[in-house]
Design a binder for these strands. Sequence first.
DNA 1: ATTAATCCTATCGTTATGGTAGGGTATTTT
DNA 2: AAAATACCCTACCATAACGATAGGATTAAT
Lengths: 160, 160
Amino acid sequence: MKISTRARYGMRAMLDIAVHSDGGLVLLKDIAARQEISKRYLEHMMTQLRNSGLVVSERGASGGYRLARDPGDIRLDEIFEALEGEIAVVECIRDAAICSRADECVTRDLWCEVASAIRSVLGTKTLADLKKRYERVKEQGRDSGRGDVRVHSSTGRAVK
Amino acid sequence: MKISTRARYGMRAMLDIAVHSDGGLVLLKDIAARQEISKRYLEHMMTQLRNSGLVVSERGASGGYRLARDPGDIRLDEIFEALEGEIAVVECIRDAAICSRADECVTRDLWCEVASAIRSVLGTKTLADLKKRYERVKEQGRDSGRGDVRVHSSTGRAVK
DNA sequence: ATTAATCCTATCGTTATGGTAGGGTATTTT
DNA sequence: AAAATACCCTACCATAACGATAGGATTAAT
Ligand code: FES
Ligand code: FES
């Protein structure tokens, strides 16, 4: 279970646009440069984001991208799903015929819970929240007092 | 973001063992038959589970598998990670050098939260819980009153 | 020795991932 | 009108992951 670069890059791109558009358009070139992502590759993600109606583009010279809606109105799960596809799906949710005896299958419930958990993280935050967080981190550094949660390198679990 | 068949099959296998071992050993053959999974394929998952120390095997005629520990002492995230690998990793957690400017990267925090959310679903349940759930479902049917949460086929979100 | 079980390793086809490339189209600027 | 700029579409490619199958090697009970 890894998060794809698409999702990571795309999310960063969205944040980048939110941060750097002063009402105007943001250039792919600039996003790519700031985020140090291949412009050509980033194009794909922008396409996905556009097709999902999260950004709108203007073509031609002095074109660019901007958010389709207010940052406070773009949930992070929308961004995620635009890039990564539906969250933590087990096919048998849609189509119970896939698993034999889906009726008595109690593990399916489990996967649903996992999906819900992810959604409740990403679905309760908006791009505006992320932007706020970014700006806080940027101006005061990463809360160097005690914030930076150490995680154990192999378990990923938080550690004392 | 899909959950692999390995994880699904493996989880079902673990549940199957928990349910069908009366202190004794459970045969791969039987698990495969009950779960309608290719025996040959299931072997792989059993290997992973064994290597992770979640089941122990006995070889030779009248060999088989049993849980390495008490079901109440086997967390579901252990099973999941044995099969699927580390939960929701972004590489830059381990190795900050992977992402340029990981210091000011606020999206990384987001992915950490996602990972935590998954862990808090799977890490707070044990195989004993799952077994209990299974037995409840089995004897009284799937709570046919109102339980079966309908989810929207495309969003996966719960629907009225 | 036979049988029945796990174990090890290789293979294979398909799909997904990560990324590059070429050329096309729209719009502004000159 | 022409040049420049920026997005757009489509194809391609290499590698890895996934899902599954297969052959044969061990181990142990009968
Ligand atoms: S119904 Fe699909 S895993 Fe059980
Ligand atoms: S530090 Fe890895 S995604 Fe930002």
